[in-house]
Design a binder for these strands. Structure first.
Lengths: 340, 340
DNA sequence: CAGAATATTTGAATCGTTTCAAACATCTAA
DNA sequence: TTAGATGTTTGAAACGATTCAAATATTCTG
């Protein structure tokens, strides 16, 4: 086998009988080269099977046409959806998107940031695992253009796209109360996740304003179906008189886990004994054992908007102004929370 | 703002009072440089906030430490799981993985292959949209090391990791027949997807060997929940005497769509009137309105094994031998297919 | 302490593109 | 026919890390 399988612009130039610069122009400024020459070069390119070496191109350019996205949990359909939205928009703007999964772990988050830095990515979208203020500072100090996703950047330190989680929490709690429930439980965790705290705080506020209603906080190990199932199993053991008559789960995965636990064991009827509402309104909420009520977040829109803001910061550096976009969440009522 | 924000090895060398080569050695051959020197260099690196430029490094190396994965449908949890498995393994082998979504569209598949080629990826994993033989040839002609995922590479043209879809189809059909069902329907599509055809063929074989059993093929527009729901709505209109008494859906998403249609309209009881089984055993199958029976594929294992094979082809080029790994699917019975 | 053996450090050359000022070619108008 | 404008092509000089043979420093042996 030959030593160097990959032809370079050099080889193309030689075969087409033109100079380096001309080949490059055919590739990047097709306008300036004469038709006949261009055709000759194209022919040489396809004869040799030449493919641009992106590393060399980037090295020269100093930066890439790639965006990075770090999500909290790639197995959560909400984030898949955000990623899809972001990718669609990125591609249509001529960028590529690569996705990293932090699993809410700051070390892994940093690992990806390091990777993105080495690759001189044009910019990054981060759904931060830790404190947003600190993260944004860190990113800035690394001269990385960044947009916070599913969070709000503090004091105009950068752009962000989020959803009003307090409002979402209020919607959920108010709905449960409207159904006549009093002993509300909040299930979610760990509580160091900001979104979880905000949703809880929103709910608490509403509950505390309502006479006779109480809220009980049950911290889960994570935001997964499994974590939800564990909490559910624990609740099964409690006395039906004192246990919650309504649960607000911090996301749909947890809610589905609770549902599994309650229904598979046929011990607790939903919504009769316990009303249940989740958060995110992922596609599978609708198709769960009992149709799951939820607080909808416009996932795809969040992804798209994030890319738009990042794009503006990258391409219009001069005129760019940081913006905080906040979407309003929306209540979606299904069987799990409303006895008809 | 300064012109060039990013320090280079040059800058580090200057500050530390050593030569280029020494800095490079600190980075790549820490063993050979004297302790004191190394510390001085490290100091300079952190003082300047130096971060390696991966483009330059790759250019010199001629190839990257990144693997590419192209999946048929990123919104299908089965593929998310494959991707997770692949990423985990890749990272533990010192590689990064980037994922592209072809949406079963050959153009998009080619787009990603082009991208991966430009990036001189170490290798690619592809779950092919079209013909595997052709694709493998094409990849080979581009000197890309590749492993086919969820397919079988023909005549030893390369490595592949798949699942025996014929066997899966047989399992599903046999199970439905064992439940006493006779009018089996297969829902899936488009039929140009190889996996779909194989599952259908496996099922057909079993049905045709069974006296009195028939199979009806209903081609769906895609492999999504929505496509399933459309077919379901069509079936609702049919006469209950002649319509199928069992359905084998080509994947769980379609099955969930069917379930939605049947149950939301409260028109068809599952499994009493129609027994239903899906394919993939995604996590949400268990939590569907009616627990969904399915044919389980070891998604994470598929991802991991694919990376292992690719890794061997990359690192042990001399001794590498192409292998076709085929996993056996497994029947998982839940409520949707078995009246107790 | 000389001389060999070993440990460190050096820096020019290289990877494949893109850029851009300069050179060359062709066309236009007088 | 020619000066000037316009259209094409050229090729050397980056970009930033890695490599490696050669140079230099240090340690060891007798």
């Amino acid at each position: 086998m030959a030593k160097n399988l990959r032809p370079s612009v050099q080889d193309v130039a030689r075969l087409a009988g033109v100079s380096l610069g001309t080949v490059s122009n055919v590739l990047n400024n097709p306008g300036v080269v004469r038709r006949a020459t261009a055709e000759r070069v194209q022919q040489a390119i396809s004869d040799l099977g030449f493919v641009r070496n992106d590393a060399a191109r980037q090295l020269k350019a100093g930066k890439s046409k790639t965006l990075g996205l770090i999500v909290l949990d790639a197995s959560n359909p909400f984030f898949s959806e955000v990623a899809r939205g972001a990718e669609d928009r990125a591609v249509s703007l001529g960028y590529s998107l690569i996705v990293g999964n932090s699993g809410n772990d700051e070390d892994r988050e940093n690992h990806y940031i390091g990777l993105f830095e080495e690759q001189r990515m044009a910019g990054v979208l981060v759904s931060p695992a830790g404190s947003d203020a600190q993260l944004m500072d860190e990113l800035r100090s690394k001269h990385l253009r960044a947009v916070l996703v599913d969070r709000t950047a503090p004091n105009n330190s950068g752009c962000s796209v989020g959803v009003d989680d307090m409002a979402g929490g209020k919607l959920a709690a108010q709905h449960l109360i409207d159904q006549g429930r009093k002993r509300i439980a909040f299930v979610g965790g760990p509580l160091n996740i900001k979104q979880v705290r905000d949703r809880l705080n929103g709910a608490s506020e509403v509950v505390n304003e309502t006479a006779g209603a109480t809220i009980r906080i049950i911290e889960s190990a994570g935001m997964t179906v499994l974590a939800g199932r564990e909490i559910g199993d624990r609740l099964l053991a409690e006395d039906s008189k004192s246990r919650p008559d309504a649960i607000f789960a911090a996301n749909d995965l947890i809610a589905i886990g609770l549902l599994q636990s309650f229904v598979f064991n046929s011990r607790i009827r939903v919504p009769e004994e316990i009303a249940l509402i989740g958060y995110d309104d992922i596609g599978f909420a609708e198709t769960a054992i009992v149709g799951l009520s939820s607080i909808r977040q416009p996932a795809k829109e969040i992804g798209k908007t994030s890319v738009d803001l990042l794009f503006d910061e990258i391409e219009n550096l001069e005129t760019h102004e940081h913006r905080q976009v906040t979407f309003r969440p929306e209540l979606v009522v299904r069987a799990s929370s409303s006895c008809i």
